[in-house]
Design a binder for these strands. Structure first.
Lengths: 353, 353
DNA sequence: TTGAAAGCGGTACCAG
DNA sequence: CTGGTACCGCTTTCAA
């Protein structure tokens, strides 16, 4: 690959001039500019980005750190991020933490060393340990040679005033979903299949569930939580158990769609009618929700928009050092289907899958 | 962020010495090494990778170019790639082409300018136009400043002797699937729901389908192809039509699982019994295959392994300039479920989803 | 074993 | 408007 000095030689001009043309500075005479452009064309020259990064302290690279690529949640977000990134001239560096905080910490510092211009982070820093606190503090003042590296978090916001975040209100959407089960469908025994309880997201959803019961005047002792582990199988197993043990239950609110699908499969196998005997609501509205039968009522999280917004906020930070930090909460939507509505008509036309 | 010279200053040694310690060269006295390590620790120094890349012509970056992230196919491959990449000290740069060849060409040259050490490419260069040929030729001699950039392609192999590839034998797996429908299940009217016909993958699968019919002595005019477009809805619509028009059909081979799921939903709605009246086979074995009812028989493509193998081959190329180019064909497996076997027992336990 | 110094390929300032 | 030159941070030869 040709370097800038090959081009200068070929065009018979100085390196500075070539650089000016490359950066479309106006202070080059048309004749020289023309010569340079020809040379660039002939040698198929393109600027070496490693050198560019080194000199300009801008890599045009952003890092996206997620817990796991196989979570469809992140795939869609990533698409949204990438869409804006391409438009703004950034390239995405990708990494997974597998929900391990040490990995996450290592990745962040590695990316800082790579001089990324910004980071979008789905963190696993729950808890309140000393290490976590220190880590979060360090995130706020992350930098490459004096220049600040902005960070935008996904899913939830850190306390730090200097960290932007794009998320949804999990508690509120859970509250609305459960209230709908109670108020519109008249259910009294709503059981919650939760995420592992150390997970912040799961805690938020569980809180929404409890608040809905409380506000409907259902006593605390009727709050029934079964702890699942994200997977379809865990939902399936818990619901089989629950039915076998004849636990009073006329509705389920599952903290994600995978577990809800498991719940549906369990009910189908045991010939429990949905929604007549048990109404079911999931969370996330992944495509499988419209494919299972009965199709699943779920809380739609605007995943693509989350990605788009996160990247837009990050771009703002990257272009101007003094962009105000933002905590964005995007709206969710309860998508009602056959698992709660007896007269719902499935329509595959809108399933983009 | 501290630079190498800050460390040198702090430790009271030369930059060269620090560099030696960083690269764990043996020619540093224990005392100095100790001092340097302390300084590194205190200043929380990590080497600037942009500078490193510039100097060493190694970026430890690899590019992964896929058509679309939302194809679950690539998500799993990406995980496999990333697994090995992390282990070998590489970071993944990600990009999507959305099946547009111009985008692909642009991306490849952009990544070359970024000095990536290697590229894993799911190309959209089907056809045989002049542009395509030129592009493929250019891929073989892609380079950054004299150093060759190795390329590994996914899904199919280019003719070039200098391009490695990791793929599966689509024709053969289609052949085996259809032969099973004919020979083991005794079906005579097997219809193929194909991919758009300009897609190479689709062509390969269609070829396998035709060969299976031919070898079973079924006349050419009984080859019935319906062209779908990847989506669940297209499979659904085609099968509804086919049943409404009473086209003779006792088995379907769908070129992907999404369309097969659509086919199942159509049969369910019209009360066509699966597999008694129509047996169905999909391709890819995505998780939805084990979740639909009846569960779907499908051709399992070792996606994770493809990613792992691709990255391993690429690593080989990157570590040694004269690594022999490889064309790897991984084995597929026909996973039999309820859509072809009446006595299949669904087991969610193995659904890692 | 250690340090000095020359670049890697650009950018940006300054002088002309 | 143009060219010379210092320098970004690191690696690597070469000499001491």
């Amino acid at each position: 690959m040709a370097g800038i000095k090959d081009v200068a030689l070929r065009a018979g001009v100085s390196i500075s001039t070539v650089s000016r043309v490359m950066n479309s500075s106006k202070t080059v005479s048309p004749e020289l500019a023309e010569k340079v452009r020809n040379a660039i064309e002939e040698l198929d020259y393109s600027t070496n980005l490693a050198a560019h990064s080194l000199r300009s302290q801008k890599s045009h690279l952003i890092a996206v750190i997620v817990t796991s690529l196989s979570r469809p949640f992140f795939t869609d977000i990533l698409e949204g991020i990438n869409e804006i990134a391409v438009r703004e001239g950034y390239t995405v560096l990708l990494a997974e933490t597998h929900d391990d905080l040490d990995t996450e910490i290592r990745l962040v510092s590695e990316f800082a060393a790579r001089c990324v211009d910004g980071i979008i982070l789905a963190s696993s820093a729950y808890g309140k340990s000393k290490k976590t606190e220190e880590y979060i503090a360090s995130l706020e003042k992350l930098e490459k040679h004096g220049a600040h590296i902005p960070v935008v978090t996904l899913e939830f916001a850190f306390a730090g005033k200097d960290l932007s975040a794009v998320m949804v209100d999990n508690e509120r959407s859970a509250f609305e979903a459960v209230s709908y089960l109670i108020r519109d469908l008249g259910r009294r025994h709503v059981i919650h299949i939760s995420l592992p309880k150390e997970h912040l997201l799961g805690q938020q959803r569980a809180r929404g569930y409890k608040r809905a019961l409380a506000e409907a005047g259902i006593p605390d002792e009727d709050c029934v939580l079964y702890e699942g582990n994200y997977t379809t199988y865990s939902g399936y197993k818990l619901v089989r158990k629950l039915i076998a043990e004849k636990v009073p239950c006329d509705a389920l609110f599952c903290a994600n769609d995978q577990m809800a699908v498991g719940a549906i499969l369990a009910c189908n196998e045991l010939s429990v009618r949905i929604p007549e005997e048990i109404a079911i609501i999931g969370n996330d509205d992944i495509f499988a929700a419209s494919l299972v039968r009965p199709s699943l009522t779920s809380i739609r999280v605007p995943r693509h928009d989350i990605g788009v917004s996160a990247m837009k906020v990050l771009t703002g930070h990257m272009e101007s050092e003094k962009w105000a930090c933002q905590k964005l909460t995007l709206r969710t939507e309860l998508v009602k289907r056959s698992s709660t509505e007896t007269d719902y008509v499935n329509d595959l036309k809108n399933v983009i899958w």
